[in-house]
Computed example of a mutant assay.
Amino acid sequence: MSEARNALVTGGTRGLGLAVARRLAAEGWSTTVFGLDQGRLEKVRAMARSEGLDLHAVRADVTSEESVRQAVADLTRTRPLHLCVNNAGRNLSRLLLRTPRDGGGELLTHPLDDWERTLRLCLTGVFLVGREAAASMVRHEVPGVIVNVSSGLACGAYGQSAYTAAKAGVEALTRTWSYELGPYGIRVVAVAPGVMDGEALREKSTAFPRHARYMEGLKRFVPLGRWAAEDEIADAVCFAADNPYLTGSVIRIDGGGPPGWVP
């Protein structure tokens, strides 16, 4: 390409976000990642230098309206934004109700704080960043693309009230924004991964052997018999960014299942 296109990836200092950012930078995008952990931001900068990538790391809190406004304004002050990948998120597994393991005491319920923190990061963060990215694209008259990372769990899953509600909301925002932003030439697409064999899964499986056994058992419901590599999901994000007639769609890349997690 004659002139570098500019991309933003939230939650881009690890896992899928970092895989997407590296892929975009390798393909010639001038890429910026948003993250909160200063140590991880520094690692991304060091990696970019060592690999010769046009990849930058900025501290920004996607749950803060002011932080998002300032970070996107700084990013687009001298150059337009062509692609925004809303990837930041976190899954907190909580049952709506559960009885104490010893059978006594009061019924335990899903904490409101966990619900609100999950929705603020996984849904409100998408809204805030997507809104500012779209406004920037319109101001610069750029026919840009917003790719929202959803999940194969958006249809519902055991012990995932907050996360599944947030991801279902992400898919609804994707369709809504495709209608609203289409007249400006802006496309909006969602990518919904299944389980990824990445850093997050490995860390949790190491810390909780019971979870590792549960996840291993789930593979029997996946026709391909394995979890996705993060690079395979990054491929889908790049496809969504490059296909000029794709908007309002949810690309499900889950190996054929499972449709939702069950006990």
Rank of each mutant, 00 (worst) to 15 (best):
A240V: 00
D242W: 09
A135L: 14
S249R: 05
F208Y: 15
A192T: 08
W227N: 02
D113R: 04
P183Y: 13
A207H: 13
S249M: 01
A207K: 14
N148C: 06
S150Y: 11
V126S: 05
Q160E: 13
G125M: 09
M137C: 01
F239Y: 13
R117V: 14
P223C: 03
A234E: 09
V138T: 13
L121G: 08
E141R: 12
L119C: 08
V237R: 15
V222R: 07
A154M: 08
F221K: 09
S161V: 14
I251W: 11
R210E: 14
S150E: 06
A154S: 15
D114W: 10
F208V: 13
G130S: 13
L218V: 13
F127Y: 14
G248P: 10
E171L: 05
E141S: 12
V188E: 08
C238W: 14
S136G: 14
C155G: 05
L121V: 15
G152V: 05
R202Y: 04
C122P: 05
V170H: 14
G169Y: 03
G194P: 04
V147H: 07
E141M: 04
E132F: 13
A172V: 11
A165D: 05
K204T: 09
A134Y: 11
A157F: 00
E199Y: 08
A240G: 00
Y163M: 02
G152S: 11
V145L: 07
D114Q: 00
V191E: 03
A166R: 08
A229Y: 11
Y184E: 14
R175N: 03
K204M: 12
A190R: 07
T247L: 15
G248E: 10
L128Q: 10
G198W: 01
S150L: 09
N148G: 10
I251M: 06
V138L: 04
T206S: 15
R175S: 00
E171S: 01
K219G: 03
G156W: 07
R187P: 04
V250Y: 00
L128A: 10
V250N: 09
A212G: 13
A228I: 03
